[in-house]
Amino acid sequence: MSAVLGAWVLARVPLLNPPVEPELRPGLDPEAVTPGLLGFVVVFGVVLAAIPLLRSFASKMRRVNHRSRSRSRVDEPGGEPPTGGGDADEDGAVRR
């Protein structure tokens, strides 16, 4: 078990194992190897897909924080339930 652990640690310490330069096909220039148009399109698509996901996540987090603050105000002595649009359920939380 310790030999496997030692090999795992040594494989992940870059100072003990210098990186090995990969071998290219003969006649292939290392400067000419690029991701190309396909690589750009894939990365661009991932970025475009991530933008609405991150915006949705941020709006949901704002909503959760707002509900948390509203509930803490209700729980304080002398606190009043939040007012505004929406129906309050049996816990006093306002649903929109």
Score class of each variant (00 low, 15 high):
Met1Leu: 13
Met1Ser: 07
Ser2Asn: 04
Ser2Gly: 00
Ala3Val: 11
Val4Glu: 04
Leu5Lys: 09
Gly6Ser: 08
Gly6Trp: 09
Gly6Ile: 14
Gly6Thr: 09
Ala7Cys: 07
Trp8Ala: 05
Val9Ala: 06
Val9Ile: 10
Leu10Glu: 08
Ala11His: 11
Ala11Met: 11
Ala11Asn: 10
Ala11Ile: 02
Ala11Trp: 15
Arg12Ser: 03
Val13Gly: 01
Val13Leu: 08
Pro14Trp: 02
Leu15Trp: 09
Leu15Gln: 06
Leu15His: 06
Leu16Arg: 01
Leu16Gly: 08
Leu16Glu: 06
Asn17Ala: 09
Asn17His: 14
Asn17Glu: 04
Pro18Lys: 01
Pro19Gly: 02
Val20Trp: 10
Val20Asp: 02
Glu21Gln: 10
Glu21Arg: 13
Pro22Ile: 05
Pro22Leu: 03
Pro22Gly: 00
Glu23Tyr: 02
Glu23Thr: 12
Leu24Cys: 02
Leu24Asn: 00
Leu24His: 04
Arg25Val: 10
Arg25Pro: 01
Leu28Arg: 10
Leu28Val: 14
Asp29Met: 03
Pro30Met: 05
Glu31Tyr: 10
Ala32Pro: 00
Val33His: 01
Val33Thr: 05
Thr34Ile: 15
Thr34His: 12
Gly36Asp: 01
Gly36Thr: 01
Gly36Ser: 05
Leu37Tyr: 06
Gly39Thr: 00
Phe40Pro: 06
Phe40Glu: 08
Phe40Leu: 13
Val41Phe: 09
Val41Lys: 11
Val41Ile: 14
Val41Gly: 10
Val42Gly: 02
Val43Arg: 15
Val43Trp: 11
Val43Gln: 15
Phe44Ile: 08
Gly45Ala: 07
Gly45Pro: 02
Gly45Asn: 06
Val46His: 13
Val46Asp: 07
Leu48Tyr: 07
Leu48His: 04
Leu48Glu: 00
Ala49Cys: 07
Ile51Thr: 03
Pro52Ser: 02
Leu53Ser: 09
Leu53Asn: 08
Leu54Tyr: 11
Arg55Gly: 12
Phe57Ser: 10
Phe57Thr: 05
Phe57Val: 09
Phe57Gln: 09
Ala58Gly: 02
Ala58Val: 05
Ser59Thr: 05
Ser59Lys: 06
Met61Ala: 13
Met61Gly: 07
Arg63His: 12
Arg63Ile: 09
Val64Arg: 09
Val64Asp: 05
Asn65Lys: 15
Asn65Thr: 14
His66Asn: 10
His66Leu: 15
Arg67Cys: 05
Arg67Leu: 14
Ser68Lys: 12
Arg69Asp: 04
Arg69Ala: 13
Ser70Thr: 08
Ser70Gln: 03
Ser72Pro: 03
Arg73His: 11
Val74Tyr: 08
Asp75Ala: 13
Asp75Val: 05
Asp75Pro: 02
Glu76Ala: 15
Glu76Asp: 10
Pro77Asp: 07
Gly78Ile: 01
Gly78Glu: 00
Gly79Pro: 04
Gly79Arg: 04
Pro81Thr: 00
Pro81Gln: 11
Thr83Lys: 13
Gly84Lys: 03
Gly84Leu: 00
Gly84Pro: 04
Gly84Asp: 00
Gly84Tyr: 00
Gly85Ser: 12
Gly86Cys: 04
Gly86Tyr: 05
Asp87His: 14
Asp87Phe: 15
Asp87Tyr: 14
Glu90Tyr: 11
Glu90Arg: 12
Asp91Tyr: 11
Asp91Ser: 14
Asp91Glu: 10
Gly92Lys: 06
Gly92Asp: 05
Ala93Asp: 11
Ala93Trp: 09
Ala93Tyr: 08
Val94Thr: 09
Val94Leu: 15
Arg96Tyr: 10
Arg96Ala: 12
Arg96Gln: 15
Arg96Ser: 12
